[in-house]
Amino acid sequence: MSILVFGKTGQVACELQRLHPEFTYLSREEADLSNPDACGETILAAKPSAVINAAAYTAVDHAEDEESLAYTINAEAPAAMANACATLGIPLVHISTDYVFDGSGEMSRAPDAPTAPINAYGRTKLAGEEAIRASGALHAILRTSWVFSAHGNNFVKTMLRLSETREALSIVADQIGGPTPASDIALACAKMAQNLNKSGTYHISGAPSVSWADFAREIFAQADRIVTVTAIPTKDYPTPAARPLNSRLDCASLLSDFGVKQPQWKDELAKVIRELT
């Protein structure tokens, strides 16, 4: 089965390469998502069995000033991919985000819950989802949150770096979500691409739910770093883009349809820390 993956150096793509080196991975030089038409043409020329889009504009704060560019990459490029997949009659697996929700309440969001993004990044990702659904392509949209791994830029690597020079940190405690290992997202994407027979939207997010402050405490505990974490509210850590307070995701349908269990993030965190330290 020939599977074409957009993205080569991102967290999920790096983990996909560990699982499936036989897939074809496209770098930014080979497939620039700021040129959506070229992305579609690449698929039509390659004629793969399936496509995984593991590439995106993910600079959440910069998107507030670059929403047009983020829209091209996060909405127009996936639309072009989906249209090409529809033409070839092949499935598309696309990674999306919890940021399509407004983050209100305390309940886990189901895949069919109402969307209402509160920042530019979320708006562009939601537009990408809508374009894929409208294309008529066989597709799976996989929303996730708080991705971490030994690759790229993520909260775990930032905390480990800061722990080298800081003895105390103030970290937000009223944003709650599920840290998600990139390795589990990669596993889910591969299973979907190889077994997709109906279109749908799914969630993958680590358990148990936790605040950023408590996530940081677990990172420091597992890495044997002595850092005092002071919990603060979001209002005391202003950012250009608003963040959802509730990022809990209901992952039940991913298990029932593809047999992918909700990740236990503490177990995978231990593996990532061993790799990084």
Rank of each mutant, 00 (worst) to 15 (best):
D112L: 11
V172K: 05
V172L: 04
A38S: 15
G136A: 06
P111M: 04
T234R: 10
R161K: 15
K8Q: 11
L162Q: 13
F101Q: 01
Y237K: 14
L16I: 04
A223G: 12
D98Y: 03
I132C: 06
M81G: 00
P114K: 09
M81N: 02
D174A: 12
E41S: 13
F148Q: 02
Y121P: 01
G103E: 04
V272R: 00
S209H: 11
F258E: 00
V147M: 08
I73V: 15
N154P: 10
E29D: 14
I219R: 00
E29C: 06
C39S: 13
F220M: 12
A252M: 10
N246H: 09
A213L: 07
A252I: 14
S34A: 15
F101M: 06
M1Q: 13
F258R: 01
A50R: 09
Q175I: 14
C189K: 04
I171N: 06
S209Y: 11
E41L: 13
N153C: 08
G103R: 02
V227G: 09
E218H: 11
L249D: 05
T87L: 07
A45I: 08
Y202F: 15
L187G: 00
P179I: 07
A59Y: 12
A182R: 03
L19Q: 13
K235I: 12
S205R: 04
T58E: 01
I132F: 07
L196H: 11
L276A: 03
Y121W: 10
S145K: 01
E29N: 12
E15P: 08
I176Q: 08
V5D: 06
E275P: 00
K271E: 15
Q222D: 11
E22P: 05
P240Q: 09
E15S: 10
L142P: 01
L169D: 09
P208T: 09
S49L: 11
V100W: 00
D65P: 00
S256H: 08
S163Q: 10
K191H: 12
C251Y: 06
T9C: 02
A190N: 05
E66G: 02
H20A: 14
G178D: 07
L26W: 03
E164P: 04
G259P: 03
A75V: 07
A131M: 02
T277C: 07
W212Q: 07
A137W: 02
I185Q: 01
N74R: 01
P117V: 03
W146P: 02
E167M: 08
H151Y: 15
H62D: 15
Q175Y: 07
D184C: 06
I90T: 04
A45T: 14
A193Y: 04
R225Y: 14
I118P: 00
F101A: 02
S205H: 05
R225M: 13
V210N: 00
E167T: 15
A116T: 05
Q11M: 15
R225P: 00
H139N: 13
A137Y: 02
V260Q: 05
G178Q: 05
L69R: 12
S209W: 07
A13C: 11
I171C: 07
T234C: 13
G200T: 14
R161D: 15
G136Q: 08
V147Q: 06
E76I: 08
